[in-house]
Design a protein around this nucleic acid. Sequence first.
DNA 1: AAACTCACCAACCGCAAACGG
DNA 2: GCCGTTTGCGGTTGGTGAGTT
Length: 248
Amino acid sequence: MGRQPCCDKLGVKKGPWTAEEDKKLINFILTNGQCCWRAVPKLAGLRRCGKSCRLRWTNYLRPDLKRGLLSEAEEQLVIDLHARLGNRWSKIAARLPGRTDNEIKNHWNTHIKKKLLKMGIDPVTHEPLQKQLLSDEAPLSDSQESGNHCVAENDSIINSEAHSSSPTENCSSDDSLLLDNICKNESLVNSLWLDEAPLVDPTWQNPAGGLPSMEENCAWLLDCQDFGIHDFGLDCFSDIEFNVMNSN
DNA sequence: AAACTCACCAACCGCAAACGG
DNA sequence: GCCGTTTGCGGTTGGTGAGTT
């Protein structure tokens, strides 16, 4: 029995989303909340598959998203988390409020990977490349091998290699502070290790450096789209959207 | 100015987990 | 417990703009 396609291939639009489609999707989710993605396109009047709608919403339209490049502190946190969690982008994203797994994955592949290679660190294992060359010549023992592929098993790495690059070197003072807090926060590290629910560092909630307000977050829509958020009553975001977020 | 290359990122695809009857 | 359906995740692709020749 073959797997059912996620959507009817016929009549389903693909490719970049138009402002009109975004508007319909935002309108629908603001009114009805996030539920049953498969039904969303039909109910919202979109010729898209539910999967595509979910992706568009979570990666681009969600009002709680932070826009723009990752800060030095965020980048360092991604590196540390990657050393522990590997390519589990959704887990990593869960620790970075306002960032999506797709965004982090893209940033990793385009920026961080190269940065680490430049620094002589293997982006997959987080081991120094020099060390890797040596170990390639001499076959690894079982324990070494497992440590190599599952860095999360090795606590020392996050405290040695990852930090040996002196993460705070190039940070602004604010970023350095945030990073220091993250690194010193034993409970955060433990929660990461235990794979618990996201632990929101107080720093993230700082209005100056943390998550922007809902209004600030929606402001980009006004700049980027050919429609305004007030067209579909985004003033009510604070009520409806928080309910939606909280219900998840 | 045109051709080409590179970097970036939104979006797609396929698989696996989760869910519900 | 089984089976079909839905959702979420991670890898990959393709379009586009910027930079270079």
